[in-house]
Design a protein around this nucleic acid. Structure first.
Lengths: 205, 205, 205, 205
DNA sequence: GATGAATGAGCGTTCATTCAT
DNA sequence: AATGAATGAACGCTCATTCAT
């Protein structure tokens, strides 16, 4: 009982941190902002976390491990490479749909922060890239994708596309609603699949 | 003469700032780091610039306006939408090729920094997005791209892909060399063009 | 019975405090260090003690009152001033022999801490100095010590010498073993006695 | 000129630190206390010093090196061991006479602080002890002191006595005036010399 | 008695910016 | 133009102490 409550409080502080990080960015977020968002004294933050940085690290790793797990499960349970890619895109988009603040922090403060947290979490990030690259290789082996594009580059294209949609929603460049979320998922996978389809005849020029 | 020297000094300070920002990120960069990189007293930085932020703002706007100009010129001088898109991709990639530090700062510290400088420069960033969207619309009107995808989304895909390649080079996830630069340019444009080609028959599954 | 247990717990906490204070010094010691050394929750410390300071105060006063009592008893039961001085030296050295941690705290954190606890406990400390001064006066009256040195100064010399031996052991400047303890006791008393012997003829130069 | 002024400012801050440390002790001294004592913004303290600790370290080492130099010089220029010991005692006492705050800090915050700065500066402290021990050995070789007392122990007695006088002045246990300073110097050396004189016949009992 | 969650005052340190020279 | 001394707001973090359970 008591420990459950403690865990709740810890979680509520981490949620407060997520909200504050999402709103103001990590650097502009003060520990006291987080504490008052959570409705606690700032000292309590340090009862549950070692530092402000640790909160972001944990926040990221918690979520990223879900993505890795989801992709691993998709790899095992789904049939086609395309379904697997679609599952990966769906997981990311749906994560944003349900918890935009978490994903905003994950994307903006970590995966795209080449000088700070991105560097720290590079191993985890790379694991996701590798998983998508593996999906691509499966597609290549099935003859569904062209072989002359490296799976690494294809994975880059995939994440670039998905993250940019999130970026667009975050920056409010494009509307963020249910329809758009679903459209984005399909568009990304469809475009990648068409764009990297085996080449029979030249397209465009 | 004297003013030329002054302009040189100013430029050398901005170059030092670029280097330092690229290495450590904006937040971790101290004005004194920039000053010592430039070989001047840190007070002198404030003779030429109002603030640390101003340096980044100027750095970004200088470069971004070149991109906007390049795209505008491409729009006027080049024939096909595909060539125009290719010119945009080439400009960005070649910018990185020649001045990776500038582009690292532009991408990492501004266009992807949704909570700080990205927000400030949103109008300029949007202008580039709109220009690419316009290229897409031209392609759509010529029947080279499917009409049921919004040009905005297509533009997002384009920038997502290009920036992710830069990200890959910055993070050292993929090798950064002449071949790769050229391959990336082509791959992005080709994939977008194929991926968004008018739909005749289903692809993939 | 219950109260005995309580008293035991209280004592074990004070012992833990002694150990921690001796190891890290009062300022570097955290209440939680003491609690975990004692194997209790740190809140419990405040059930038995008002504050961290109180623990040191009590620790010191407990021990110092034993010294005062020992010297008072020596004054009453022993014959010669020299025996009394020897008893005082022996008590201090043997205290260190048996409980080096307690004496380390007493000396380092209190009697030599002129800006904090030393000031607070000055009355008790002075009482010990006065007692030794009284022994000296007795020796002077018996003609065993020179009269032209104030008993206060002689007392200072005595404590300076004894404490410095403790210091030497604490700092590990000199070996701390049974032999040394006994040698130190004798050396201090002997040297003081010889050094302050009535002057018949010049010594040294 | 400019650098002279800068050096002056640095010195005035260190002097302010000395005064504040002497008054309140190192731990109770705030950097802002030092800054306002020096009449500067607290940020300036960090322009000249790395940390609060560095100020105490420098303060101590500056003074202690003077003591070591004085003793080395005494060793070279003076004739008799007794004169050398007297010079050592005189240097310490006169240091206190002229700059009681410096010496208070040196003694209270360093040489007697077994858990913090004393430990850090043990090598320097030991060097002084060794020098006095060397004086004692010289006296022993000249037959002026008993051989059966280790020079280390004798050195301990010497410093114990001298420091305890400083302690007495610091604690205001004994009056601190010119007469007393001179009396103390003589008393310490005289007592040590008599107390450790070669033994012909038993003294005291 | 006992726990440990919760509080919040307090401090060392950093660093962008200003300004006298 | 150029220097670097000087300022001071700001913040992360610690930890003694309190208190609900």
């Amino acid at each position: 009982m008591a420990s459950e409550k403690a865990a709740d409080k810890r979680r509520s502080i981490l949620e407060a941190a997520t909200k504050v990080f999402a709103e103001k960015g990590f650097h502009a977020s003060r520990v006291s902002d987080i504490a008052s968002e959570a409705g606690v004294a700032h000292g309590l933050v340090y009862h549950y976390f070692d530092s402000k940085e640790q909160m972001l690290n944990e926040l990221f790793s918690d979520r990223w491990s879900l993505l890795l797990a989801a992709m691993a499960e998709a790899d095992e349970t789904l049939e086609t490479p395309r379904e697997k890619l679609a599952a990966a895109a769906a997981f990311i988009v749906d994560s944003y749909r349900h918890q935009p603040e978490v994903m905003k922090v994950v994307i903006v403060e970590v995966t795209r922060a080449a000088n700070s947290f991105g560097r720290i979490h590079l191993p985890e990030i790379t694991r996701a890239y590798d998983q998508v690259a593996s999906f691509v290789e499966q597609a290549q082996q099935k003859g569904e994708m062209r072989n002359d594009v490296s799976s690494t580059d294809a994975s880059l294209l995939f994440f670039g596309a998905v993250e940019q949609f999130l970026s667009g929603w975050i920056f409010e460049l494009v509307p963020a609603n249910e329809e758009e979320f679903d459209r984005a998922k399909e568009l990304v996978v469809d475009t990648i699949y068409r764009g990297l389809a085996p080449i029979s005849e030249p397209v465009g020029d």
